[in-house]
Design a protein around this nucleic acid. Structure first.
Length: 231
DNA sequence: GCGACAG
DNA sequence: ATCTTGTCGC
């Protein structure tokens, strides 16, 4: 399926799309999405170790066709607004190892819906140069009106006079998720992809798969992690 | 100064 | 994020 991302040609000076957050995509028109990645990071109780997972699902079958998990020490404390410093490194590491390479990446967190328009999804996209969408379970900035209760309903999230994302109802009568552009595509496309990738649950399948992988990797190999990283 | 604050 | 079983409902 075509990604339909908007092309911004810096050379010719054509203007970036209004909903690209002032940052044009660099994905060539006609690109087809065959593999979608979901990335997530899990932490152990002590808060010393973490597992970053990248799950690759085929489109449109949504079958898991690849996965990679990177275990390592937590390098930065949690700071609202600075998640990238804590998770971008591990996530990019997992994405570098996973196969097949994704055409679209879903990130657990915000993209442009961030105080400085530099959420985790933006950092991941700039790192791999592949379109990314930020999907957060909780708001970080902005104001919005609650979307209708039907699946597919959504409302814009505005902050400082800018539309930085959307509140999307991926499942009827269930708390909506916050969607924002990470890198390389428009908000409209981001919303459509999130809905297509969330046929049954609140969160899109790629993120559910990544969450599961990260979690099980962390509690399934604590001894291994300890042996490799401590001695 | 006070409150809010993704994962 | 993480600590955690059962339970109500489709």
């Amino acid at each position: 399926m075509a990604l339909n991302a908007t092309w911004y040609d810096a050379a010719t000076g054509s203007a970036p799309p209004a909903d690209a957050g002032g940052r044009g995509g660099t994905v060539a028109p006609g690109d087809v999405v065959q593999n979608v990645a979901g990335v997530d990071v899990a932490y152990d109780r002590s808060g010393r170790w973490c597992a970053a997972a990248a799950a690759i699902l085929s489109w449109p079958h949504l079958r898991v066709v690849g996965e990679a998990v990177r275990l390592g020490p937590v390098e930065a404390p949690y700071r609202p607004g600075d998640l990238a410093a804590r998770e971008a490194g591990p996530i990019l590491g997992a994405l570098r190892d996973v196969a097949p390479p994704p055409d679209l990446v879903l990130v657990d967190g915000h993209g442009l819906a961030h105080p400085r328009r530099r959420g985790l999804a933006c950092a991941v996209g700039e790192g791999i140069r592949v379109p990314t969408v930020g999907v957060a379970k909780e708001p970080l900035v902005g104001r919005w009106a609650p979307p209708l209760s039907a699946r597919g309903a959504w409302a814009p999230v505005q902050d400082q006079g800018e539309m930085v994302g959307a509140v999307v109802r991926t499942r009827a009568d269930v708390k909506p998720v916050f969607v924002s552009v990470g890198w390389g595509l428009t908000l409209t496309e981001a919303i459509r992809w999130i809905l297509r990738l969330s046929p049954r649950y609140r969160l899109p399948e790629p993120l559910r798969a990544a969450h599961a992988w990260a979690g099980q990797a962390l509690r399934k190999a604590p001894a291994l992690t300890n042996a490799v990283l401590c001695d």
